[in-house]
């Protein structure tokens, strides 16, 4: 194990998969000569050359579709969106073409493509540049979605996504690229299966379910709660689809209280689905109403204080826990 950044972890995952499989290539805006808008693809053009690392014009609908067409005939493209806010311009390709092809063709054409890039609000970027897109895409059958929150998960999930035979969205955290964490040495082929949550911290009084940007704030909330003798169990979902229901149910059966901390907006949200499934499957395990902490249901304001008011926070999670503990 060694300590590397989230950015470096993604870079290693890209390099390893491109080196391993000649069908894998990276395409997107500024990925090659500029070394990536967030420097995730640093050095890859020098190492792999312009046939494998491909700059595109600002043309998300076009190059997302190009990737899907290439995947239909056997390549395994990695398509980078400068941020997932810009993937909305390619929404039709991601929603209508990639995940429908296998069913529409009666099983003849699967689409092994990875769409990746930063997702979720960053800092004061305003309404157009602050979208968390997981709720939008989670609604679509045929897509898989993962949301790595640590360098280790970023590397392992991205590598698993590239090897998956389906369209996978790797929703990275724009604010985490410089975060450091322990990751297996480079000689380890680190693969983290899609659909496996991680128990971040054991506890007995309440389960805090989190993912992506809400992972560090959930852990901070748990630390504060511990000072008041409330032992929170923290689960990082890591994948939104498929979702690790057994891990969720197991923890709830132990703590009987749940707070869901979401990066996205509340309406038809990830937490709505999780809360519904918990009450449907293990209603009798619940001792209190399920609480949710998410963004406010408003377009993201620019002003710093107002933006903070929209976002989930450790304090909001603590308050939600205290309502039921």
């Amino acid at each position: 194990m060694r300590e590397i950044t989230y950015r470096q972890a993604l870079n290693e995952a890209l390099a390893e998969e491109i080196a391993r499989d000649p069908n894998v290539f990276l395409m997107g805006e500024e990925v090659a000569e500029y070394n990536g808008a967030y420097k995730v693809s640093q050095g890859l053009l020098d190492r792999f050359g312009p046939t494998r690392i491909i700059d595109t014009p600002i043309s998300e609908n076009g190059f997302a579709g190009l990737g899907i067409g290439a995947a239909m005939v056997g390549l395994r493209p990695i398509v980078e969106f400068m941020t997932f806010s810009f993937s909305l311009v390619a929404f039709d390709q991601i929603v209508n073409n990639a995940p429908n092809m296998l069913t529409m063709s009666g099983g003849q054409f699967n689409v092994p493509i990875t769409f990746r890039g930063p997702n979720g609000p960053a800092h004061q970027l305003g309404a157009t540049h602050s979208h968390a897109t997981e709720c939008l895409y989670a609604n679509v059958p045929g897509l898989k979605i993962c949301t790595p929150a640590t360098p280790r998960d970023a590397k392992g999930l991205l590598k698993a996504a590239v090897r998956d035979n389906n369209p996978v969205l790797v929703l990275e955290c724009e604010l985490f690229y410089s975060h450091k964490g322990m990751v297996e040495d480079e000689d380890v082929d680190l693969l983290i299966p899609l659909g496996e949550a991680e128990l971040k911290q054991e506890g007995s009084d309440v389960t805090i379910i989190c993912y992506a940007q809400t992972v560090p704030i959930a852990l901070a909330a748990a630390e504060n709660l511990a000072k008041e003798n409330i032992n929170a169990e923290v689960i990082d979902l890591r994948s939104i689809k498929p979702l690790d229901w057994p891990a969720v149910f197991k923890s709830v059966a132990k703590t009987h209280r749940v707070v869901i901390a979401e990066q996205d907006r509340p309406w038809c949200g990830i937490g709505s689905e999780i809360a519904y499934r918990i009450q449907q499957e293990i209603f009798d395990e619940l001792d209190a109403p399920i609480q949710r902490v998410s963004q406010e249901d408003v377009p993201m304001p620019y002003n710093e204080a107002l933006e903070q008011a929209v976002l989930p926070s450790a304090a909001k999670i603590v308050a939600a826990v205290k309502k039921i503990c």
Binding site: G62, F63, G65, G67, I68, G69, A70, M72, V73, L75
Partner: peptide, 8 residues
Amino acid sequence: PLATGMAF
């Protein structure tokens, strides 16, 4: 766009 991908 899919056609450009197949040609690609």
